[in-house]
Structure formats: structure tokens, C-alpha cells
Simulated assay, not measured.
Amino acid sequence: MSIARIWSLLVDAVAYTSWEAYKNEEVKYLPQSLESITTDSIITFLNSAVETSFVKVEEIKRMEKVYNDYRSTNAEIPKKREIFYGYF
């Protein structure tokens, strides 16, 4: 596996996370570097993550379940790392 591929994957993860944060905050304008991100981008990111073995399909399914369960509770976003890790 190429180090460049892993770095690219990490950059994609940070970009997508930033894009989601800006969308969540409902800002009027996104930074230019984030304007091209779409919901299709996350599919490409996840496919790349699985392809490089950065993450396994089972882990993605677990993240999706945790995310859906968390959203259904309307709980406050955890501010401590240990609490956040506890969800997984």
C-alpha cells in the first residue's frame, strides 16, 4: 500500500469532516477548498478507505449504527475523548 494513498485518504477524511461541520453550522459560504465536496464524495472516500484496508466494511457498518443510534437520542455531542470513544 502506498504512503501517498494513505495520506490522500487522511486528507479526504479531514476535508469531509470539515464539510459536514460547516453544513451543520449552516454557514452561508464554504471555504473554497470544501466547495467541491458532495455526498458522492463520502461514497468515494469510504470505497477508498476499504480498498486500502484503512477501515473494514464491518467498521463502517458499526460507525453507521452508532451514528444512527446517537442521532435518534438527540443527546449532546460528547466533549471528552473517552466518552466519544465509548460509543465505539
Rank of each mutant, 00 (worst) to 15 (best):
I37S: 01
S41V: 03
K23Y: 09
E26T: 14
F88R: 03
L34V: 06
R71T: 11
R71S: 07
F88P: 03
D69A: 10
V11L: 11
A21F: 06
I6H: 06
V11W: 07
A4E: 09
E51A: 15
Q32T: 10
Y70N: 06
I77E: 11
S48E: 13
T44D: 03
A15Q: 13
A49T: 06
M1T: 04
M63K: 10
A21E: 13
F45I: 07
V66R: 08
I37M: 10
E51Q: 14
D12L: 14
T17G: 05
E20D: 02
K61Y: 10
Y22S: 03
W19T: 04
E26C: 10
K80M: 13
D12Y: 15
N68I: 07
K65A: 11
F84L: 13
E26N: 12
M63A: 12
T52F: 04
L34W: 07
V50D: 04
S53P: 00
S33A: 13
E51V: 08
R62I: 07
I43R: 03
I42T: 04
D12R: 15
K28L: 05
M1P: 00
A21R: 14
V14P: 05
I37N: 01
S72P: 09
I43Q: 02
P31R: 06
T52Y: 02
I6N: 03
A21L: 11
P78L: 05
K80S: 10
E25G: 12
I42A: 00
Q32S: 11
I6T: 09
F54W: 01
E76D: 10
E35I: 03
Y16L: 12
A49G: 15
T38D: 01
A21V: 11
Y67T: 08
A75V: 05
R71Q: 12
L10P: 02
I77D: 01
F45A: 05
A75Y: 12
I37C: 06
N47M: 06
S8Y: 11
I77N: 09
Y87M: 11
F84D: 02
I42F: 08
R5M: 07
Y22E: 14
E76W: 00
I60Y: 10
Y87T: 06
N24M: 15
K65W: 05
Y87F: 09
I60F: 13
A13L: 14
F54G: 04
W19G: 06
N68C: 02
E25K: 15
S36L: 00
T44P: 00
I3R: 11
K61Q: 12
W7H: 14
Y70M: 12
A13N: 08
I60G: 02
V11D: 08
V50T: 14
N74P: 08
L30A: 06
T38Y: 00
K28E: 13
I43E: 03
I42P: 00
V57Q: 15
P78R: 09
T73A: 10
A15D: 10
S36M: 04
V55G: 05
Q32L: 08
Y70F: 15
A49H: 04
E82V: 04
T39L: 01
E26A: 12
V11F: 09
R5Q: 07
V27H: 05
S8V: 05
F45V: 01
M63L: 11
W7V: 06
E82I: 04
K28W: 05
T38A: 00
S36K: 03
L34P: 02
N68G: 05
Y16M: 06
I42H: 02
A75F: 12
N24F: 12
I3K: 08
V11E: 09
E76S: 07
A4R: 05
R81V: 02
S36T: 03
R81D: 04
E20I: 12
